[in-house]
């Protein structure tokens, strides 16, 4: 199976409005795309992608496989994904520990699942199927959580570690999601990261969140990807990098997308933290 060739440097989620800016990419040394946005027959989107892939390592990030779904994976969608991956030949492919499709209806959101032996078996079978069909070793990303499933019997870190052990997949550690979930569920992000199987991390995501009222006088953090990375998330990131060394690190900014210099500055901050670790 093909393994990752994404560099342990900073990348950004590609937005078409930044195409011209990428002539001078600064600290941005690779790009991530959402697979589903490029599942078209032809035209300017694919032409842009063809140009970018000649200049940057590309990470393909899926949002629609519904790996955590109760139903079977959609063979048509897997087929579209395989065609895209054959075209782009990405350095890496990742997807989410979440579901988004039920009985054929797609909800365009990453929906949560309880962590039980049954859901573990299903997710591991789906990851196996994806890896077989695509002929690669995928990365699985931890979700952001807003609520607790009373039926869960496993912790998220146990769940992810066991899926990886059974399937050989690697992990995408979204540190913003770790922070959001810990805040929303009243747990400790540090404790989560202490339990997390960090040796399996093939990529890190950093993003910004929004703070709302939880209706009970406390904050409810929403994973908006619409703001700068927050200071406590940078602090957790610095801790992780100090522990495991540099890893491919993505700045995700999908809503209220800023101008390129603002995005590049976030990438530069991640790159500096990695450089400091290399020098230490």
């Amino acid at each position: 199976m093909q393994s990752s060739s994404l560099p342990s440097t900073a990348g950004i989620g590609f937005k078409s409005q930044h195409f011209d800016d990428l002539a001078h990419p600064g600290a941005v040394s690779w790009l991530e795309i959402h697979a589903e946005n490029y599942m078209v027959e032809g035209g300017p989107r694919l032409a842009m992608l063809d140009e970018l892939r000649a200049r940057f390592p590309i990470s393909v990030h899926g949002v629609g496989l519904s790996i955590g779904g109760e139903g079977p994976l959609d063979p048509a969608h897997l087929g579209r994904l395989k065609r895209l991956i054959e075209r782009v030949r990405p350095a890496q492919f990742s997807e989410h520990l979440a579901w988004s499709t039920h009985e054929g209806a797609y909800f365009s959101d990453l929906l949560p699942l309880p962590y039980t032996p049954d859901t573990l078996e299903r997710v591991a079978a789906h990851v196996d199927e994806v890896q077989q069909r695509l002929g690669l070793c995928m990365l699985l990303e931890n979700p952001s959580s807003y609520l607790v499933f009373e039926e869960s019997t496993l912790s998220e870190t146990e769940f992810l570690a066991e899926v990886a052990r059974r399937t050989g997949c690697r992990l995408l550690l979204d540190i913003n999601n770790v922070f959001i979930s810990a805040s929303n569920l009243g747990t400790s992000a540090q404790a989560y990261l202490a339990d997390y199987p960090v040796d399996l991390v093939g990529e890190i995501h950093l993003a910004g969140y929004a703070e709302e009222d939880d209706g009970q006088g406390g904050p409810l953090l929403i994973d908006t990807h619409g703001a700068p990375v927050a200071d406590p998330v940078w602090a957790l990131y610095a801790d992780v990098i100090a522990r495991i060394g540099p890893r491919p690190t993505l700045i995700e900014w999908d809503n209220e997308v800023p101008d390129f210099p603002t995005l590049e500055a976030e990438a530069a901050r991640a790159a500096q933290l990695m450089a400091r670790r290399r020098a230490a």
Binding site: D109, Y146, Q216
Partner: peptide
């Protein structure tokens, strides 16, 4: 069987998903 960390039934929190889905489809 969905709750917030205090064990209270999650309503406001479930509505985060309702809102996400509606916004995503409307924006598309």
């Amino acid at each position: 069987h969905l709750s917030d960390p205090s064990g209270t039934r999650a309503t406001r929190r479930f509505d985060v998903y309702r809102n996400n889905v509606t916004v995503a489809l409307t924006e598309a």
